[in-house]
Design a protein around this nucleic acid. Sequence first.
RNA 1: CGGGACGUAGCGCAGUCUGGUAGCGCACCUGCCUUGGGAGCAGGGGGCCGGAGGUUCAAAUCCUCUCGUCCCGACCA
Length: 574
Amino acid sequence: MRYSNSLIPTLKESPAEAEVISHKLMLRAGMIRKLSAGIYSFLPLGLKVIRKIERIVREEMDRAGAEEVLMPAVQPAELWIESGRWDFYGKELLRFKDRHGRDFCLGPTHEEVITDLVRREVRSYRDMPLNLYQIQAKFRDEIRPRFGLMRGREFSMKDAYSFDIDDAALGETYGKMYEAYMRIFKRCGLKFCAVEADTGTIGGSSSHEFMVLADSGEDLVASCGGCGYGANIEKAKSRREVDEAQPAQKLERKEVSTPDVTSVEDVVGFLGNGIADITAKRLVKTLIIKADSVFYAILMQGDDELNEVKLTNFLGANELEMANSEEIEKVTGGAQGFSGPVGLNIDIIADVAVKGMSNFVTGANKKDTHFLNVNLGDFSVRDFVDLRKVRDGDVCPKCESGVLKITRGIEVGHIFKLGRKYSEALKATYLDNSGREQVITMGCYGIGIGRTAAAAIEQNHDDGGIIFPLPIAPYEVLVLALNTKDDAVMQRAYAIYEELKAKGCDVLIDDRKERAGIKFKDADLIGIPIRVVVGAKKLAEGSVEVSLRRDREKTDVAVEDVIAKVMSYIDTRV
RNA sequence: CGGGACGUAGCGCAGUCUGGUAGCGCACCUGCCUUGGGAGCAGGGGGCCGGAGGUUCAAAUCCUCUCGUCCCGACCA
């Protein structure tokens, strides 16, 4: 492609709307333009990157035995009502009516459609395993789209859906997909890790997320340097140090006046001031939670934080929120900030850490009052569960020695064992080898295509712009002709360009009648990995300059060796 | 949905407090000049100041409403 014929509208300054680096650079490099919040057009350069990622995904999915299909973006409400998600999915599901007043939605995902398709076609265990994938636009009406392609409303996604006869067969398919994902992200040139994940609204039994490590990531990942354990913070477990200072002998419960002392820190500070020797570890905080309009008291050690995802999963709740002050007074009989487990008549659920505690401090369900020396016998706990949010430096739950480190990540892929959730709801069944009807066992496997592109840029850039990994770069080589009025330069540049093209190379030639500075700046910005500069001076000596965007080290190469040099870079993937 | 900010030329912004001719830089067009890191000179085009009401002799500027965008939070695969 000739630069002079291509639409690559680079910007010197980043538009005010962009916050994260990948968003800024994609706008500046002329890859994307916003049409509406969370909705983007792809310009030639952006589309080429998307296509490269898609190609890698297709190759690896096909290699893993999956087969591509294409499904409608517009989906009828009936299917969603049948699966139970029409009401459950919430406002993220963009709904509308057609001219006949029938309900439709824009597909945020395609479990319903694919399951409907498969239940009509699959009859026998002989028809499986089956693994179908699609790469297409999906629409989720996000409350807050942000960071460009990172969290758009309309976004391109690869989704695969697998159909197996039982859990064992699903396990095998799941393993293949896991391997395929490892290969895909590796081929995209990303630094990433696979971690255990919560299944969210998609549901299902187990799941892994593929996280690209980047400071701008919206997710937190806990990982162990020792044994390789990794999990999304929503899911992560940890072993906590037992507090040796807990006194063994139970003391008598005492009521103390604590005027206006509500937070954990305040209580510790207030009591520590001559009343009792207390740290946050010796305090049990009581959170009043409303889960699908049922109230629960949640007990946590004072210095721990509640992991709401863990609680939501344990309760099997749809919606979880903190009770407001009115509700707290109604439920506990006391003011907000003074809640405690003693005397409550709602279910009490405690974090496992509380089990090992004695003579602790709690609220007294009475304004300006706390209890000292509360013990587990003073109230009844319905369940002890792991509810705590993992912190940096916690001990690894898998191995003895490791310490968990918390880092930010961008979720580019997510694989789920769905089990029979959708196949049961939509009655997708088959006959097994003894003629009995069985429910199909499903899995689903997503990759955010645009998000992967954004993540790659988050990980590969410098002050000058993008540094594309070769396999997903819009072009592999940029031939930069410096002196456009110099016939020798232009002829040589075109010759190199044509020859590289003939070798199957994806090459862009900057033949614009622009000053050298502009061309170099644009070249840095759009980040094409291999650069060949043809200039009058060097050419007079019979050489051109070859450099890599990544290290910017320039090498003079004899004109006749240029093609070989470039091809060697490509063959070794730089 | 709660909190905050911003809508002025394609992009980045000033002007708004204190009402009185709509500006600057970049980009764009023409010419000269220049050609290894976003040059220089000269000339030029481009705006219903997001929209609608109101106050006023007069509104980008003050008031009310509305739409849009971005950030933080809640939410989310």
